[in-house]
Simulated scan of single mutants.
Amino acid sequence: MKHGVLSEADDLVVEEHPIAMTYNGISHAVMMATPADLEDFALGFSLSEGIIAHPGECYGVDVVNGAGGITVEIEIASGAFMELKERRRTLAGRTGCGLCGVDSLDQVCRPLPTLARAQGFNTEGVRRALSEIGPRQALTRLTGAAHAAAWCGMDGELRIVREDVGRHNALDKVIGAMTRAKAAPGDGFLLITSRVSFEMAQKASLAGVSALVGMSAPTLAAVELAETAGMTLLAFARGSDFVCYTHPDGLQLDSACQSPPPGAA
Rank of each mutant, 00 (worst) to 15 (best):
L234P: 03
G69I: 14
L158Q: 05
G186C: 05
G60H: 08
I19E: 12
I52E: 04
V5N: 03
H3P: 00
A211C: 03
I26Q: 15
C100M: 10
G250C: 01
F189Y: 02
V30Y: 07
G214T: 12
V72F: 09
G134C: 03
A42C: 10
P111A: 03
H147T: 05
E227K: 00
C244W: 00
C97E: 11
A204G: 07
G125E: 10
Q202N: 11
A149Y: 15
P18L: 07
Q258E: 13
G120T: 09
E163L: 08
S27T: 02
S27R: 15
A181S: 01
V61L: 10
V61P: 04
Q107A: 06
A20W: 14
K85Q: 15
L225H: 00
L233H: 04
V5M: 07
E163S: 05
C152Q: 08
T143D: 09
T71Q: 11
R127L: 09
E157T: 12
G44P: 13
S259K: 12
T22E: 13
R89I: 15
H17K: 15
G153A: 14
S78L: 15
P111K: 02
L142I: 07
S7G: 08
Y23N: 00
S216W: 04
P260Y: 03
L91V: 07
S27M: 11
Y23M: 02
E8W: 11
D103N: 11
H17G: 00
F242P: 01
A265Q: 02
A177Q: 00
V30S: 07
T22V: 15
G144A: 05
I51V: 06
G69C: 10
L225G: 03
R167W: 13
A264H: 06
A92E: 15
G25K: 12
T114W: 06
Q258W: 10
C100G: 07
A29G: 09
A148R: 05
P185H: 05
D254R: 13
V5D: 03
P262A: 14
A237G: 06
V196M: 04
F189G: 03
G60I: 11
G44D: 09
A138C: 08
M231R: 02
L6F: 00
A33Y: 12
